[in-house]
Nucleic acid binder design. Sequence first.
DNA 1: GCCGTTTTCGGCCCGACTGTTTTCAGTCG
Length: 567
Amino acid sequence: MKSKEISRLFDQIADALEFQGENQFKVGAYRKVARTLSEMAEDIEVIHREGRLREIPGVGEGIAQHITEYLETGKISKYEEELKKVPAELIQLMDIPGMGPKTLALANKKLGVKNLSDLKKAIENGSLAGIPGLGEKKVGNIRKGIARFEKVKERIPLGMALPLAEEIMTGLRGKFKITMISPAGSLRRMRETVGDIDILAGSSQGKKIVEAFTRLPMVKETLAAGDTKGSIITDEGLQVDLRVVPEKAFGAALQYFTGSQAHNVKLRGIAHKMGIKVNEYGVFRGEKLIAGQTEEGVYQSLGMQCPPPEMREDRGEIELAREGKIPRLVEIPDIRGDLHVHSRHSDGSGEIEEIAGKAREKGYQWIAICDHSKSARYARGLPEAEVLKVIEEIEELNQRLKGIRVLAGAEVDILPDGSLDFPDRILKKLDVVVGAVHQGFKKNVTGRMTRAMDNPYLKIIAHPTGRLISAREGYEIDIEAVMEKAARTGTALEINAHYDRLDLDDLNAMKAKKAGVKIAIGTDAHSVRMLDYMRLGVAVARRGWLGPEDIVNTWSADKIINWQKKQ
DNA sequence: GCCGTTTTCGGCCCGACTGTTTTCAGTCG
């Protein structure tokens, strides 16, 4: 995507300008457009061709020219100029925690620091600490910052961060009677990965709570500990920030620290024009507090609905909230069943009966067992005769079990020629057929998937892009073409809820809805415990602005079976 | 560099913590 590349260049221009002490709002202008471009669904070349560049928020005359130049010549002269003044190697040093543009400029000007090894030398021989304005402690912090910088700061998956946040909150609740405590930041917005964990508490005992926080068992290092704010590194190397605010300001603080930053900047801009100030202690008209106890109150005071945290990315939700048009998003209680679960018959670990029991416990009405098909040998895929036995087992279980219905499904491989791994005579016996590409990730995946959708038995495409958050980009695929075909054939696309997949992701889920495609959420659980990943899948759907009407999991078992049987 | 139901000029979100200041700058989120 060209918009991603342009976004990267703008970010680097922003870095270079910042280093040179350029006006922070000019820097911000580049950053804002970089962010918009990086998540834009529409093709930038189409926008350019239709003369609509200036309609992109934050794109004015100058930036429009840069974009045009890139699309016509493949480069941006402004970028080349800035890079000549400030080499990339130098810019990169700003990523060191504690090292901002000012400090770096000082080190560069006074000591000629040009790269990481220069910087290390300046620290070791004491010359950095000798610069006026810097001192031993500051240099000590930069030294620690370098250690973290070199460790390749990785973002951690939501599915790992959530339990850790819950553990920390439980630890604090055990020591204090805190009723108001919540995750904030990207964790509360349920982004697929988070860089750190933000936790907010409402209490008058800030200092004590921060102290207790820094003494929790998982704390390896304390970065900061004040009266209202603490910051620690866990033994796994993850940063956790805690803020404590008075109870009467909890709503305002929750709004504030949930972000996103872009959402808040826009919100505060609106408040400003209304003569209102919003900060983490409340909403103020002059000196007078007009809201702050609850988040709803904060938004209400600005004449808006309160958008769910998952929507707060400045993707148009503020405009909707002002018009009172925030959609009803899908919620966990809407989910009647899981559409992608493996049992011990292929590569899962649970007995079907055990899985059904857990599904009932979760309040589901049904659960679809979808073991692998025969070509998926690495996953102990089932030959036809075995599938028939599993179907029989499920029929017998359904006679016996109360309060839950098991659907006999399969995760059928989409083969290199686009055909399915089971013949129609098997497929027609199943309650739900999920198709998936498990091999040949670079071999005409778009063509194979669209051809597979010509088979009327195929109802769901599992993990449609094949990406793994920690490991790989995914298939070479034209996802728009897949969505278009899915809409035409009535095939659903999956949000795979495994924490390392979350595939489709939020933006693709949003795109799918616009294309008229239904979404199926499947945990891809290989053990009973993994059925809990449903909350991650629902989170992605909510981040994609999907409602219960978009999600197949909200249907009854009969409706799903009818869907499968109807060709 | 962008933007306009206050403005085509003069704003642009806002506060905590740290360290080095003797009243505040830099960094971070």
